[in-house]
Design a protein around this nucleic acid. Structure first.
Lengths: 356, 356
DNA sequence: ATTTAGCAGTCTCCTGGTACGAGTGCTAAA
DNA sequence: TTTAGCACTCGTACCAGGAGACTGCTAAAT
């Protein structure tokens, strides 16, 4: 990355980007003259040089300058100052999370809602998941004579329900005993272990009855399915907030962003990457050759508890995005979520958290 | 409702509406001349009369006619023919549902997806719920020394998870015994009964310990909360499909429909109404004085098992909507869902189903 | 050597005017 | 009662021209 910029050029670049982020209008030289303390002609010369360097560009000859992907990148890495949330904002957010602290389902909803409203663009959150599914508990509940509801709880508190039909009727007591036996058999087992159990059932004393085998098969399948289903579980919010941005004046843009969020082409690639890295990831425009993201920027962070569970949260918006604030917000919410999860999983471990 | 229309006028109205639904363009007199078998001048006279009657209108003097709300209403009630799905479509849909038959969570997702793709507008589905929450089963799972995961299953297979913290640590066995006792205490109880149990605990022998009281309080709260939370649980799909319609060329429209779906102002009023009525409900434009729906039509149907569980599903789209097909599709999917639920809840009851 | 004022040049966007096309309502004849 | 014909009304597409916004360049000032 070009670091051979004079101090003044860095200042011009920074100011241009800040103005553009604020106003969504290409920035003219005279807008900066007083701010930089030189004449507009001098600013023009500097801008020329920055354009030469690939950091700024013009939409047409008589327009002001807008940042390029590279320009934004330079800004994010070298120029911008951290913009933490105010103490008041932090208190409000903490308080909201405190109110739903016992309601696991609400966490991701709240995280997405807070992100969206704080940065005024779309937010996405995946639920916290173990690196590998581990069995925690199962329950068999009689629905009617030949239907049983299987409720499966995994180590990461994921809950999955399924029905299964049985030839012969079972009483709730019988089902309770069966569930008890399977629970002790499967304690902490991974998907493969459960799967093996169900196939080598004859070697156990007493051998498993057919219902038990059937249940184990379902459990094994549900557990291994989880690893793929990540995409379906991405929760998002804030479409409405994002539509307020001027870049969404044309419906085509709205369609684009909807298919990115729903189709998940980008999530297939960006989320695993965020899951594998520490800290906040910023993808500006089509940086990594992802053409469908050409006009968008994505800010993602992993959250969770090291070695236990992890999820990803972040925002997606137009390239012209308030990076300092967005990055701070994503980082803050990720920390809050990590703290919440740390309270749940092992007080002996520490949250995934970037050093201040 | 004006039934004093000559046969030919009815035919003109019907044809105008069909053309408009197909093309989204105001319909000119000469487009119908050959179809009706008279000259365009005659068609114009008839159109004039229909405009007089409030069934058609012009956007400006030199434009063709478009239907009014009343026109659509007359069409839906008196003119349109039923358009059942083809046998092939029905087979495909049935097959898709068959594949997820054991996966309760998937039902509403699939229903919304199928609706959206079949009628090419936005679909919404609420999960099937009992008229009154009844307790079915609870489970207490030890997460760590002072955190317990409470999994609550209601009669309608709704599952809710919550954490609670306890002063002193409990082993999983202890928790199992406690859960067992509470399960037999609460069998089939309503929210109020559970609530009474938790407050009159001293009268039981042995009296409930503080953890048990705490759990019962949480259960009671969770059960009564459900009745309000309906709105949050509305699942929708098909935004992208709907955006293909020409009425969504302007972003303002997209915003409108998003806030209707998310804000739920309309769902607060329409869904309870659909839940309380039989058959398919059609709301055209601002018919019931709902101004935010002025430009949209909503088709809803209840589904479920009489006396057991019920939910609502349907579509929302521009007023210019293929009513015959949409109504048939909504009715069909509602029947499929009702059948699925009938297999689960009492084979002795019959599905909510409109007579053919 | 750097900065700056001034100016010519380029490009967008808005405005007003016009021609065109679409579709109607009316009238008078069939 | 129907229909052909025609005048009339509007919306829209198109074009030219002018205003405005910025730039790049040049030449003078520091």
């Amino acid at each position: 990355m070009n670091v051979e910029l004079t101090e003044r050029r860095r200042r011009v670049l920074k100011t241009v980007i800040q103005h553009y982020i604020d106003t969504a209008n290409p920035v003219a030289s005279h807008e900066l003259a007083s701010e930089i303390g030189v004449s507009s002609a001098t600013v023009r010369n500097e801008m020329s040089a920055l354009e030469e360097a690939g950091l700024l560009m013009q939409l047409h000859t008589s327009a002001g300058r807008v940042p390029t992907d590279m320009g934004y990148r330079y800004f994010v890495e070298n120029l911008m100052e951290r913009a933490s949330l105010t103490a008041q904002e932090q208190r409000t957010i903490k308080h909201q999370f405190y109110q739903v602290r016992s309601d696991l389902d609400q966490w991701i909803h709240l995280a997405a809602a807070v992100l969206a409203r704080t940065v005024r663009s779309a937010a996405l959150v995946t639920p916290p998941r173990s690196y590998e599914s581990r069995f925690k508990h199962l329950e068999l509940i009689s629905i009617n004579d030949n239907t049983i509801l299987l409720v499966l709880v995994l180590q990461d508190s994921t809950i999955k329900q399924q029905t299964l039909s049985s030839e012969e009727p079972y009483t709730q007591e019988q089902l309770g005993r069966i569930a008890g036996r399977l629970n002790s058999l499967c304690e902490d087992a991974t998907a493969t272990v459960v799967s093996e159990l169900s196939s080598s059932s004859a070697s156990l004393a007493p051998p498993l009855i057919s219902l038990e085998i059937h249940v184990l098969e379902l459990v094994a399948r549900a557990m291994s399915l989880f690893e793929d289903q990540m995409n379906e579980l991405i929760h998002h919010d804030g479409l409405l907030e994002m539509l307020e941005q001027p870049e969404f004046m044309q419906v085509a843009r709205v369609r684009e962003v909807l298919s990115i969020l729903q189709g998940g082409t980008m999530l297939d690639s960006l989320i695993p990457q965020a899951l594998a890295s520490d800290g906040v990831q910023v993808v500006i425009g089509g940086e990594h050759g992802r053409d469908e993201l050409r006009d968008y920027s994505v800010i993602l962070s992993r959250y969770g508890v090291d070695g236990e569970v992890a999820g990803v949260l972040g925002v997606i918006g137009p390239r012209r995005m308030p990076y300092p604030r967005s990055i701070s917000t994503v980082r803050y919410i990720a920390n809050v979520m990590s703290d919440l999860l740390t309270d749940l999983y092992g007080s002996d471990t520490r949250p995934v958290r970037e050093s201040k």
